[in-house]
Amino acid sequence: MSIWYLTDLVGTSVFAISGALSALSKKMYHDLFSIFFISFLTAIGGGTVRDVIMGAHPIAWIRDPNYLIVIIGSVGVAVLCRRWLQGVLRRPLLVFDTVGIGIYTILGMQKALSFGVNTWASMLLGVISALFGGVIRDTLVNDLPLIFDRQLYATPCLAGAVLYQIGLILALDPNLNFILSASAITLIRLVAIRRGWSLPRINS
């Protein structure tokens, strides 16, 4: 079992928890299927879109049952520990979402590069892998998707993707390159949330 496979499962779990927390924030306490459905689409949405674009078949969660097992377990953790999470983390949904986009941007880019995709397309596919599940989640719970908000969301992913590509050029250790790039995405996003950073508005 490789470190990248385990990291992919961790990312799946993080996004599944963010989906469950989003559903629970809408008071879906008595509809476990709806919570699971939103968590499932949040967890696999971006990776599935990326793989369909690349023609990568069979798609991971269809081939490997461990992804569904991780999602089910993550939903259980989110439901059972929601009060603890809300007590420990001021904004648990944003924290899990932020960690998820950091992991999945780089994992998505790695997979795209392994399929021979060019550098620029691999960066875009990494961003799609990271963000599309969140777009589905927010749409299903009737929230404005974060990518359409003014706050920095896609920009940290692009910055991390560029940093990862620089690491490849410099022949950094693959594990170190992954950690630095994913951490940069997470850190930029968390600081942007904390300080209210956003891109300038385009005047009409």
Rank of each mutant, 00 (worst) to 15 (best):
R63A: 15
N66I: 11
Y67C: 01
V70C: 09
I72W: 09
I72M: 15
G73L: 07
G73P: 06
G73I: 00
S74Q: 07
S74P: 02
V77N: 04
A78E: 06
A78G: 09
V79E: 04
C81K: 13
W84K: 15
Q86S: 14
Q86G: 14
V88I: 15
L89H: 05
R90M: 12
R91I: 10
R91Y: 12
L93M: 14
V95R: 00
V95D: 05
V95Q: 04
V95H: 08
F96Q: 01
T98G: 11
I101M: 11
I103C: 06
Y104D: 11
T105R: 05
I106L: 12
G108W: 03
M109E: 14
Q110L: 15
L113S: 13
L113G: 09
L113I: 14
F115S: 11
V117T: 13
T119W: 11
T119M: 13
T119G: 00
S122D: 03
S122Y: 01
M123T: 06
L125W: 07
G126T: 00
V127P: 08
A130L: 04
A130H: 05
G133W: 01
V135W: 05
R137Y: 10
D138W: 00
T139H: 04
T139K: 01
V141N: 01
N142Q: 14
D143I: 05
P145G: 06
P145V: 02
P145E: 07
L146M: 15
I147R: 02
A154T: 03
T155L: 15
L158C: 10
A159H: 06
A159I: 15
G160R: 06
A161S: 14
V162G: 10
V162D: 11
